[in-house]
Amino acid sequence: MSEEQVLAHNFMTLTFAAKSENESFARITVAAFISQLDPTMDELSDLKTVVSEAVTNSIIHGYDSDSTGTVTITAKIERETVTITVEDRGQGIEDLDLAKEPLYTSKPELERSGMGFTIMENFMDEFEVTSEPGVGTSIRMKKRIESKKALYK
Protein backbone atom coordinates (compact mmCIF):
# COMPACT_ATOMS: atom_id res chain seq x y z
CA MET A 1 0.00 0.00 0.00
CA SER A 2 1.25 3.45 -0.80
CA GLU A 3 1.46 6.07 1.94
CA GLU A 4 -1.54 7.80 0.45
CA GLN A 5 -3.69 4.68 0.73
CA VAL A 6 -2.68 4.15 4.34
CA LEU A 7 -3.58 7.73 5.18
CA ALA A 8 -6.86 7.49 3.28
CA HIS A 9 -8.47 5.84 6.27
CA ASN A 10 -7.22 6.07 9.78
CA PHE A 11 -8.72 6.49 13.23
CA MET A 12 -7.99 6.74 16.96
CA THR A 13 -9.99 6.48 20.17
CA LEU A 14 -9.05 7.98 23.51
CA THR A 15 -10.94 7.54 26.79
CA PHE A 16 -9.86 9.36 29.93
CA ALA A 17 -11.03 10.58 33.34
CA ALA A 18 -12.98 13.84 33.33
CA LYS A 19 -10.18 15.77 35.08
CA SER A 20 -9.09 19.23 34.03
CA GLU A 21 -5.44 18.18 33.92
CA ASN A 22 -6.38 15.89 31.01
CA GLU A 23 -7.57 18.77 28.80
CA SER A 24 -4.03 19.52 27.67
CA PHE A 25 -3.30 15.81 27.16
CA ALA A 26 -6.45 15.42 25.04
CA ARG A 27 -5.80 18.33 22.67
CA ILE A 28 -2.10 17.47 22.25
CA THR A 29 -2.92 13.82 21.50
CA VAL A 30 -5.50 14.72 18.85
CA ALA A 31 -3.10 17.27 17.34
CA ALA A 32 -0.34 14.65 17.18
CA PHE A 33 -2.68 12.21 15.41
CA ILE A 34 -3.77 14.81 12.88
CA SER A 35 -0.24 16.01 12.19
CA GLN A 36 0.11 13.13 9.67
CA LEU A 37 -2.04 15.28 7.34
CA ASP A 38 0.63 17.96 7.57
CA PRO A 39 -1.72 20.74 8.71
CA THR A 40 -0.67 24.37 8.94
CA MET A 41 0.05 25.88 12.37
CA ASP A 42 -3.27 27.73 12.22
CA GLU A 43 -5.22 24.56 11.46
CA LEU A 44 -3.48 22.68 14.24
CA SER A 45 -4.19 25.50 16.67
CA ASP A 46 -7.89 25.56 15.65
CA LEU A 47 -8.19 21.81 16.20
CA LYS A 48 -6.52 22.00 19.60
CA THR A 49 -8.88 24.79 20.60
CA VAL A 50 -12.06 22.95 19.61
CA VAL A 51 -10.96 19.76 21.38
CA SER A 52 -10.19 21.81 24.47
CA GLU A 53 -13.62 23.51 24.32
CA ALA A 54 -15.52 20.23 23.93
CA VAL A 55 -13.58 18.41 26.67
CA THR A 56 -13.95 21.37 29.06
CA ASN A 57 -17.72 21.37 28.40
CA SER A 58 -17.93 17.66 29.25
CA ILE A 59 -16.02 18.17 32.50
CA ILE A 60 -17.75 21.33 33.71
CA HIS A 61 -21.26 20.93 32.33
CA GLY A 62 -21.62 17.21 31.57
CA TYR A 63 -20.18 15.99 34.85
CA ASP A 64 -20.42 19.13 36.98
CA SER A 65 -16.69 18.70 37.72
CA ASP A 66 -17.17 15.17 39.10
CA SER A 67 -13.97 13.47 37.94
CA THR A 68 -15.36 9.92 38.18
CA GLY A 69 -16.91 10.47 34.73
CA THR A 70 -15.11 9.64 31.52
CA VAL A 71 -14.74 11.45 28.21
CA THR A 72 -14.18 9.64 24.92
CA ILE A 73 -12.66 11.24 21.86
CA THR A 74 -12.49 9.64 18.45
CA ALA A 75 -10.70 11.14 15.50
CA LYS A 76 -11.06 9.80 12.01
CA ILE A 77 -9.11 10.73 8.92
CA GLU A 78 -10.64 10.20 5.51
CA ARG A 79 -8.37 11.56 2.82
CA GLU A 80 -7.84 15.18 3.85
CA THR A 81 -10.89 15.45 6.11
CA VAL A 82 -10.77 14.92 9.85
CA THR A 83 -13.84 14.07 11.92
CA ILE A 84 -13.63 14.47 15.69
CA THR A 85 -16.24 13.31 18.18
CA VAL A 86 -16.19 14.14 21.87
CA GLU A 87 -18.65 12.22 24.04
CA ASP A 88 -19.62 12.11 27.68
CA ARG A 89 -22.24 10.25 29.70
CA GLY A 90 -23.06 13.25 31.80
CA GLN A 91 -26.23 15.14 32.54
CA GLY A 92 -26.88 16.32 28.98
CA ILE A 93 -28.13 19.70 27.75
CA GLU A 94 -31.76 20.70 28.35
CA ASP A 95 -32.00 23.51 25.82
CA LEU A 96 -29.54 23.15 22.95
CA ASP A 97 -30.55 26.32 21.12
CA LEU A 98 -29.96 28.38 24.24
CA ALA A 99 -26.65 26.64 24.96
CA LYS A 100 -25.42 27.48 21.44
CA GLU A 101 -26.13 31.19 21.75
CA PRO A 102 -22.92 33.22 21.86
CA LEU A 103 -22.10 34.44 25.38
CA TYR A 104 -24.82 32.31 27.01
CA THR A 105 -23.52 30.26 29.91
CA SER A 106 -25.36 28.15 32.47
CA LYS A 107 -22.48 28.71 34.88
CA PRO A 108 -21.76 32.47 35.11
CA GLU A 109 -20.57 31.95 38.70
CA LEU A 110 -17.62 29.97 37.29
CA GLU A 111 -16.80 32.86 34.93
CA ARG A 112 -17.46 30.82 31.85
CA SER A 113 -17.38 33.02 28.76
CA GLY A 114 -20.20 31.26 26.93
CA MET A 115 -18.05 31.11 23.78
CA GLY A 116 -17.35 27.37 23.58
CA PHE A 117 -19.95 26.36 20.98
CA THR A 118 -19.42 29.59 19.02
CA ILE A 119 -15.69 28.82 18.74
CA MET A 120 -16.35 25.22 17.66
CA GLU A 121 -18.80 26.41 14.99
CA ASN A 122 -16.38 29.04 13.71
CA PHE A 123 -13.24 26.92 13.64
CA MET A 124 -14.71 23.81 12.03
CA ASP A 125 -16.46 23.21 8.68
CA GLU A 126 -19.23 21.11 10.24
CA PHE A 127 -20.42 21.03 13.82
CA GLU A 128 -23.26 19.01 15.35
CA VAL A 129 -24.39 18.42 18.93
CA THR A 130 -26.59 15.58 20.10
CA SER A 131 -27.62 15.57 23.70
CA GLU A 132 -30.15 13.84 25.88
CA PRO A 133 -30.77 14.97 29.46
CA GLY A 134 -29.61 12.25 31.87
CA VAL A 135 -27.85 10.30 29.14
CA GLY A 136 -25.02 12.44 27.82
CA THR A 137 -23.75 14.67 25.06
CA SER A 138 -21.93 13.97 21.84
CA ILE A 139 -20.24 16.57 19.67
CA ARG A 140 -19.24 15.77 16.12
CA MET A 141 -17.03 18.12 14.12
CA LYS A 142 -15.43 17.99 10.71
CA LYS A 143 -12.68 19.95 9.08
CA ARG A 144 -10.91 19.66 5.77
CA ILE A 145 -7.16 20.07 6.19
CA GLU A 146 -5.57 22.15 3.46
CA SER A 147 -2.36 20.23 3.72
CA LYS A 148 0.84 22.24 3.45
CA LYS A 149 1.91 19.66 0.87
CA ALA A 150 -0.83 20.87 -1.44
CA LEU A 151 0.84 24.27 -1.56
CA TYR A 152 3.93 22.83 -3.25
CA LYS A 153 2.25 20.50 -5.73
Partner: peptide, 13 residues
Protein backbone atom coordinates in the same frame (compact mmCIF):
# COMPACT_ATOMS: atom_id res chain seq x y z
CA UNK B 1 1.20 29.25 23.50
CA UNK B 2 -2.44 28.25 23.86
CA UNK B 3 -5.66 29.79 25.05
CA UNK B 4 -9.31 28.76 24.84
CA UNK B 5 -12.61 30.23 26.02
CA UNK B 6 -11.72 29.50 29.66
CA UNK B 7 -9.00 32.12 29.22
CA UNK B 8 -11.53 34.59 27.84
CA UNK B 9 -13.70 33.99 30.90
CA UNK B 10 -10.91 34.63 33.37
CA UNK B 11 -9.74 37.77 31.51
CA UNK B 12 -13.28 39.17 31.44
CA UNK B 13 -13.69 38.48 35.15
Amino acid sequence: QFMDSSGIGVILG
